[in-house]
Design a protein around this nucleic acid. Structure first.
Length: 497
RNA sequence: GGUCCCAUCGUCUAGAGGCCUAGGACACCACCCUCUCAAGGUGGGAACACGGGUUCGAACCCCGUUGGGACUGCCA
């Protein structure tokens, strides 16, 4: 690796699930590292004890693994680096960059309100009181009174923030625990991060980080050797890139309450990681002109450039994701498809008893299923008639196209007679021809005539091609189900689903 | 309220002053194909927020307006 190779970091906070926006951020970081021979670092920002749950961290790791973006380095845990933050806090305190403040948030608001100030934000109450550290006092960062902080952003250009609009923010909790900006900056310094690529929601706090960075730099702060040499001076400010937000239909930031944002749920529904990553790549970026939207990871790596990332928010469109997933599924080698389906077919998740599943039977049916599903989670419902003792009847289908069809009894009777003679030549082609004859005998087109048969055998009006399904099901079970349906129909019985 | 960001079809986007009577994809509609459903094929409707500049010429540059969003926490 070149000594000046980029070092990017993906720095999620554990939240209990892996957000699709985080996945997009991870991807763009990963792309920059891959295309430049750089290093992609994972850092868990768990300074908040509330968010420091082991299984949540495992969730991040497994989601990244599923996406094919395992870190090159890390995970580092901020919760394990508190000593280092305290060194920074002491240095900042000794230099007078921090001051103690005993005000609660409510007190600040109350003071502002009584002073007739609608503007939220710290009023500077304790700034020059010379309060001592301790006694549960928070430590605030003394921001400049005037001047401008410039955030050099690879996507948006220089963004300027007037210091006059910046209040003295809390950098250390009353408990002594460091907060986001401080830990984040100290880590980026120690880990020699060269590119900070993150969501646009962090843009407004970036000037605080830059102020923190320069203070540490001014103080002669040196790196701790996490990466590279211990004792090296504060590195130059990294490049920044703030990615556009991912929004919902209401154009609001994706909400964990209202929107389907958990990557895990997409995985569980049967989206393929490659399709998911491909779609994510289309959110805020697009391949070169004239290139199709479906592309490989390698192509993305070679084409991607931070400078080409869009500025405006993108709607996470599940319909488009789903379409792309279908494309990826259809493009799979048949054996890969069969293999990929296993989690949905074997074990407790399947809608049939575990020992009822027959891999060879599924494999025979798989090709026609592969062409019809958009997510793997749809597979069981397409083949359950093969593994359940009796079909899972859709009440509506049964009512409309069997009970509600005057011709159904005759069709079923004719099909039973016809199929019975086909036992020796039980193939889709023979079944097709036989059913065509049945249809003719009742004066119908095949499309209309096959409905009662399909429902009797599979339980539903829609499904895989009927004759392939019958071939795989076999003559015994097919005929038994046809007789069963005909019998119940004659008895006026409506089966429960 | 303050600071900042953003603005091309319903959606994701192409477009970096003349190639634009604005292209593609998803979604939608119609037709074709067809054993259901998909897939596939063909066709269709659908956008440069508005107003000023700059320029021979603006979706593209500048300013303003409007609209949307983010942040404004001892969360990250």
């Amino acid at each position: 690796m070149a000594p000046d190779a980029p070092r990017v970091r993906f720095a999620p906070s554990p939240t209990g699930y892996f957000h699709v926006g985080s996945a997009r951020t991870a991807l763009f970081n990963w792309l920059v590292a891959r295309q430049s021979g750089g290093t992609y670092v994972l850092r868990i920002e768990d300074t908040d004890a509330e968010r420091n749950r082991e299984e949540w961290v495992d969730g991040i790791l497994s989601a990244l693994h599923w996406l094919g973006m395992d870190p090159d380095e890390g995970p580092y845990r901020q919760s394990l680096r508190t000593n280092r933050y305290h060194q920074a806090i002491d240095a900042l305190w000794d230099a007078g960059r921090l001051f103690a403040c005993g005000c609660t948030h409510d007190e600040v608001i109350a003071r502002n309100k009584s002073a007739g100030i609608l503007t939220p934000g710290y009023d500077g109450h304790c700034r020059d009181l010379g309060l001592a550290r301790g006694d549960g006092r928070a430590l605030r960062f003394r921001t400049p009174d005037d001047g401008t902080v410039v955030v050099p952003d690879a996507i948006r250009g220089d963004v300027e923030f007037p210091c006059s609009a910046m209040d003295d923010f809390v950098a250390v909790k009353g408990s002594g625990a460091p907060l986001f900006v401080l830990a984040n900056v100290v880590d980026d310094i120690d880990m020699a991060v060269t590119h900070v690529i993150r969501g646009e929601d962090l843009l407004p706090t970036t000037p605080r980080g830059i102020l923190m960075w320069s203070s540490l730099s001014d103080l002669g702060w040196t790196t701790d050797g996490t990466f590279g040499e211990a004792g090296a001076p504060t590195p130059a400010l990294p490049a920044f890139a703030h990615l556009p937000m991912l929004v919902n239909e209401a154009r609001k930031k994706l909400s964990k309450r209202k929107d389907p944002v958990a990557v895990e749920s997409y995985r569980d529904q049967g989206y393929l990681p490659e399709a998911f990553v491909n779609y994510l790549g289309l959110l805020g970026w697009s391949p070169p002109r004239d290139e199709p939207e479906i592309f490989t990871r390698d192509q993305m790596v070679s084409w991607f450039a931070l400078e080409d990332v869009n500025h405006s928010p993108a709607f996470f469109d599940v319909a488009k994701l789903t379409h792309m997933n279908g494309e990826y599924i259809r493009a799979m080698a048949p054996s890969d498809f069969v293999e990929a389906c296993r989690p949905w077919l074997e074990g407790d998740a399947a809608p049939w008893p575990a020992d009822a599943f027959d891999a060879a039977v599924f494999a025979a049916m798989a090709p026609v299923v592969q062409e019809r599903v958009t997510v793997l989670g749809e597979v069981p419902a397409m083949v359950d008639f093969l593994f359940c003792d009796t079909p899972v009847f859709d009440p509506d289908s049964w009512a409309k196209s069997v009970v509600g069809d005057d011709g159904a009894p005759a069709i079923l009777a004719a099909a039973i007679a016809s199929y019975e003679s086909l036992r020796a030549d039980w193939t889709a082609a023979a079944l097709h021809a036989a059913t065509l004859a049945v249809a003719e005998s009742v004066g119908r087109k095949l499309g209309k005539a096959q409905a009662p048969i399909r429902i009797a055998v599979t339980g539903r009006r829609v499904g895989p091609p009927l004759f392939e399904a019958l071939e795989v099901l076999g003559p015994d079970r097919t005929l038994a189900r046809l007789r069963d349906a005909a019998g119940r129909l004659a008895a006026g019985d409506v089966p429960s689903a």
